[in-house]
C-alpha cells in the first residue's frame, strides 16, 4: 500500500520529465545568475566545512579510509539494484546483488570488498541515469544548495531515488525490511560520510581545478555533464567532436 502511494507521486513527476525533457538541452542554464550565486555559497561552505573535514579524513590510516569507502559504496549498491531492473540490465543486476550479498556478509557489513576480487563490479545507478537510458534528455542545468550541480532530470532523479532506494526505505521512511530498520540519522550519516570520502579522494583534483580554471563554475558544469553522460552510457569512451580539425 505504501508503494502504491509512492507510485502515485512518482507518475506525475515522471510524466513531467518526459514532457519537459526533450525540449531542453544539456548546455542550457535554467537560471544562471542564481546558480552562480548558489555555487559561490557552496564553495564557501566547502571552504569552511567540507574541505577541512576532507583534509582531516585524508590523515586517517589508509585501511580506515578504504573501509569507509567500501562501506558507503556497499550501501549505495542498494540503489543500483532497482535501477538495474528498471533499465533491464540483468548482467549488472547480478553484479549488484552478488556484490551486496557477499560484501555485507563475508565482507563484514561492507567494510571489506571481497566481491571485487571475484570479478563483481557493480556500476552505481540512480533514477537520473535510468531516465537517461529511457531517452529523457537532461533538461536545463542548475546548482542546488549543498547538493551541488544537477539538471532537471537528475533533480527529479534525486527525489525519486528516495522512493526506490531500499536503504532510504528503512531509514528516512522508517519501514522494516528483512527485519532491519533505521532512522533519518542513519541515512544522512551515511550520505555525509560518502560525501566527505568523495571530497577527500578528489582533494588534489579540486585544488588543481580551482587553481587552473578561469571560470570554475563552467569547468565544474562541464565535468558534471560529461560524467553523467558517461554513467548513462556505462562507458568512458570519448565522444568525438573534433570535426574538421581531425582532417
Amino acid at each position: 500500500m505504501h508503494y502504491l502511494k509512492n507510485f502515485k507521486i512518482l507518475v506525475p513527476v515522471l510524466f513531467m520529465v518526459f514532457l519537459l525533457g526533450p525540449k531542453l538541452y544539456s548546455a542550457e542554464e535554467c537560471f544562471e545568475k542564481t546558480s552562480r550565486a548558489v555555487f559561490k555559497f557552496n564553495m564557501a561552505l566547502d571552504d569552511v566545512i567540507l574541505e577541512p573535514l576532507a583534509k582531516g579524513y585524508n590523515k586517517l590510516p589508509s585501511p580506515v579510509r578504504k573501509g569507509t569507502n567500501n562501506f558507503t559504496s556497499n550501501i549505495g549498491t542498494l540503489l543500483s539494484i532497482p535501477n538495474n531492473i528498471l533499465q533491464g540490465n540483468f548482467k549488472q543486476l547480478g553484479h549488484s546483488v552478488g556484490s551486496f550479498a557477499i560484501n555485507s556478509t563475508v565482507g563484514l557489513l561492507g567494510v571489506l570488498n571481497p566481491a571485487e576480487k571475484i570479478g563483481l563490479n557493480p556500476h552505481k545507478e540512480d533514477v537520473g541515469q535510468t531516465l537517461g537510458t529511457y531517452g529523457v534528455s537532461t533538461g536545463c542545468y542548475f546548482v542546488l544548495p549543498v547538493l551541488g550541480p544537477t539538471t532537471v532530470r537528475d533533480s527529479v532523479g534525486i527525489f525519486a531515488d528516495t522512493f526506490i532506494d531500499p536503504f532510504a526505505h528503512i531509514t528516512i521512511r522508517e519501514k522494516e525490511l528483512l527485519s532491519t530498520s533505521g532512522n533519518n540519522l542513519d541515512y544522512f550519516s551515511v550520505k555525509a560520510t560518502g560525501a566527505i570520502d568523495f571530497r577527500a579522494e578528489n582533494d588534489k583534483n579540486f585544488e588543481s581545478l580551482e587553481k587552473n580554471s578561469i571560470d570554475l563554475y563552467s569547468s565544474i558544469k562541464s565535468i558534471y555533464l560529461q560524467d553523467r553522460e558517461n554513467k548513462i552510457r556505462n562507458s568512458i569512451e570519448d565522444q568525438d567532436d573534433w570535426g574538421s580539425l581531425d582532417n
Binding site: S213, S218, K221, Q226, S235
Partner: peptide, 16 residues
Amino acid sequence: EGLSLARTQKEEFASI
C-alpha cells in the same frame, strides 16, 4: 576517467 580535458576547456571558454 571519461572526462575530456579539451572539452572541459572548450566549455569553460564558451561560457566566458
